[in-house]
Amino acid sequence: MRKSVIAIIIIVLVVLYSSIFVVKEGERGITLQFSKVVRDEDNKPQVYEPGLHFKIPLIESVKTLDARIQTMDNQADRFVTKEKKDLIVDSYIKWRISDFSRYYLATGGGDISQAEVLLKRKFSDRLRSEIGRLDVKDIVTDSRGRLTSEVREALNSGSAGTEDEVETPAADDAIAKAAERVAAETNGKIPVVNPNSMAALGIEVVDVRIKQINLPTEVSEAIFSRMRAEREAVARRHRSQGQEEAEKLRAAADYEVTRTLAESERQALILRGEGDAEAAKLFADAFSQDPDFYAFIRSLRAYEGSFQSNQDVMVLSPDSDFFRFMKSPGNSTR
């Protein structure tokens, strides 16, 4: 009896343990019954919020899915603008699961890599078509925000089938097949959504951002070479203008120096002439007062200039007037 009670308690504990499951914060859980998503009377899947929950053991299983916003970094790719110019665009996408049941069925059991592959193909096609409508100036200016918003709305809502709407067949076919698989597994008992939108995969695109836009290497090198040539031409022009200005300044300085020197020399000659004239006038005024004294002084200067040493010899007539002041007073004629 006691063993039976223990066995019953163990069985109850095992069943209780098997019927309890925990959904962590940031996750959501859906119940599967024989690999089929359990739905309520309104045909809505049972989605469990974070916390402690119960399920039917051995019959029901729980699949937890990440409910947080996911970030998908896209590899930089080449895009062609309206002007037929190539751009290298680096971007990323923020997305999350909006319909857990549809997401689980469309991605083959909630495989995030498969979801990102489909999302990346759709995003790449959509971004390529949107960039093809704009020129480079619109893309790198304020139109970039409008571009990403239009891409996000197009991913969430899908194409409307209008004539202006671009087609993305590569991604649309893959998403349409996933939508058909979901419809087949649910027997068409779920709301119909646009098969060209990410809603067909149970995904909502939260944000689309372009990190940077670059030109291809060959184009960048050509642009840089042209810019370098233009800058060198400007530098040569400025250099030649500088040399021309330098020559002008040098010529003006040389002219000013020559003119200043000539003017200074002219003023010096004028002053020297005026000084000589003033000196001659003073001498004339001074010597006119006593002509004999003036004659005597001039003779002394002549003697001083003639006899530089004791070896000097002069041959003159004895009655020469040159030595008249060297004669004795008695022999002087005056």
Rank of each mutant, 00 (worst) to 15 (best):
E263Q: 14
V136G: 00
V80F: 04
G330T: 14
L119P: 00
T168N: 14
Q311Y: 10
A233Y: 06
Y92S: 05
L282H: 07
Q243H: 10
A277G: 15
V182C: 03
R259T: 04
E232K: 12
D276K: 06
D173T: 07
E153S: 14
F34S: 09
S61E: 12
G26T: 01
I69P: 01
R272K: 05
R152E: 00
L215E: 10
F34A: 13
A160I: 01
D319M: 01
E221I: 14
F79W: 14
I6Y: 11
V192S: 15
W95F: 04
A251M: 03
E247K: 06
F287I: 05
A284D: 12
A174G: 08
D40E: 01
P318G: 04
M227V: 12
I93D: 02
K211Q: 13
D111Y: 03
N331Y: 06
I11P: 03
E49N: 06
D319Q: 14
L261A: 01
K63R: 10
R78I: 15
D125C: 11
S320N: 11
Q70P: 15
L65S: 07
F322R: 09
V37N: 04
V219T: 10
G202N: 05
L201G: 00
D173G: 15
R236T: 08
A262K: 12
E274G: 14
T148K: 06
I93H: 00
R128G: 14
I93N: 06
E204M: 06
E204P: 05
A200K: 04
L58M: 12
L118I: 02
F54H: 09
A229Q: 13
P216C: 06
E25G: 03
V205F: 05
D312R: 13
D40G: 07
S19A: 15
A106G: 03
G330N: 12
D73W: 05
Q267V: 12
L155C: 04
G51Y: 05
I56T: 02
K189F: 09
I297D: 10
F100R: 00
E232A: 10
I190W: 08
E247Y: 07
Y17P: 01
S264M: 06
A253N: 10
E265V: 06
D164H: 13
V15H: 06
I30H: 00
L201E: 02
L87Y: 02
T168H: 07
W95R: 00
S113V: 04
A279M: 13
K63D: 08
E204S: 11
F283Q: 08
D86C: 05
E230N: 11
R28W: 05
L119A: 00
F322Y: 12
K55H: 03
A7Q: 14
V80R: 00
G242I: 08
T64S: 14
F34V: 13
A235K: 13
E167N: 09
K211M: 11
S4Q: 09
E204V: 07
E165S: 13
G132T: 05
I213C: 02
V47I: 14
E232Q: 12
L249G: 11
L201F: 01
R144N: 03
A233G: 12
Q212A: 02
E245I: 09
R226T: 02
V62M: 15
L13M: 13
T148P: 01
G158K: 03
K177F: 01
A279Y: 15
